[in-house]
Design a protein around this nucleic acid. Structure first.
Lengths: 109, 109
DNA sequence: CCGACATCCATAGCGTAGATAGGCATAGCG
DNA sequence: CGCTATGCCTATCTACGCTATGGATGTCGG
C-alpha cells in the first residue's frame, strides 16, 4: 500500500535537469547522484529514468552522446542544453511556488 | 503550460486533513479554505475532492455528519478523528522529508 | 576459469491519483 | 423568472512513476 515509494510525481524531470546542470552524466550516474545528494531519501528507478530521458531528448532539453566512461565502458552521456536550462529555471520556480503554498497551509494556525 | 495545474500529487489528503484539524468543515468549504490559505496558488477541483473525502471516510480519518449550514442549507460536515490526526502527522513528516531531500538537490552547488 | 555481482541501456504494462466533464439540487438576487 | 454561487457526487480520462523484464559488459573472489 505505497503512498509513493520513490519520487513525488512532477519532480523527476526537474531533478534530472538539475544534476545535469553541473556536468554531463550518463543515465546510471544520474540516478546515483540524485540518490546520493538526497542521502538515499530519493531513489530513481531505471524504469522511470530512461523514459524520462527520452522525453528530455524529444523536447530538446538535453543532448545525448555515446562516449567511453572512465571504466572503459560505452555509456550514453547527457548534456544540458540552453533550452534545458531555461526549462529547469521554470520548473524550479513552479516547484518553489507550490512548496511555499503548501507550507503556508501546513504552518497556518 | 504548468506540469500540474492543480495540486502536487500526494498532497491532497494531507491538505484536507490539515484544514480539518482546526474545525469541522463541509466539502465546498474545504476547497475554498485551501484555495484561500494558499493565496489562490492551489485549487482543489470538486472531482478530486469528493472522491478523496470518500477515501478519508473509508479509512476512518474523518467522520461525516449532515448538518444545516449558517446559510440554511443541508451540508455534509467532516470532522477529523484521532486516527485522522495521527495520519496527518505521518503524512506531514513524509512530506517534509521529501521536501528537504529535494531542497538538498536543488540547492546543491 | 567461472560464477556472482555491479554497471549500463531500454521497453511494455500496471497502478495510483488528480483532472475533466458532466449531472443534480437549492438559495439569493435583480 | 433567469443567473450566479453554493453544494454533493460519479464516470471517464490522462499523466507519470513503478514493476517486471530483457540484454549486454566489466570486475572480482574462489
Amino acid at each position: 500500500m505505497p503512498i509513493y515509494a520513490g519520487l513525488p510525481p512532477g519532480t523527476l524531470v526537474m531533478l534530472i535537469l538539475r544534476v545535469l546542470r553541473q556536468e554531463p552524466l550518463h543515465g546510471y550516474a544520474i540516478a546515483q547522484k540524485i540518490r546520493a545528494l538526497s542521502s538515499d531519501q530519493l531513489s530513481v528507478e531505471e524504469g522511470s529514468l530512461y523514459p524520462a530521458l527520452q522525453k528530455l531528448l524529444a523536447n530538446g532539453w538535453v543532448k545525448a552522446e555515446w562516449t567511453t566512461s572512465d571504466t572503459g565502458r560505452q555509456v550514453r552521456s547527457y548534456r544540458l542544453t540552453s533550452r534545458g536550462l531555461k526549462q529547469l529555471e521554470t520548473e524550479q520556480g513552479d516547484y518553489q511556488r507550490m512548496a511555499d503554498a503548501i507550507a503556508a497551509i501546513v504552518e497556518s494556525t
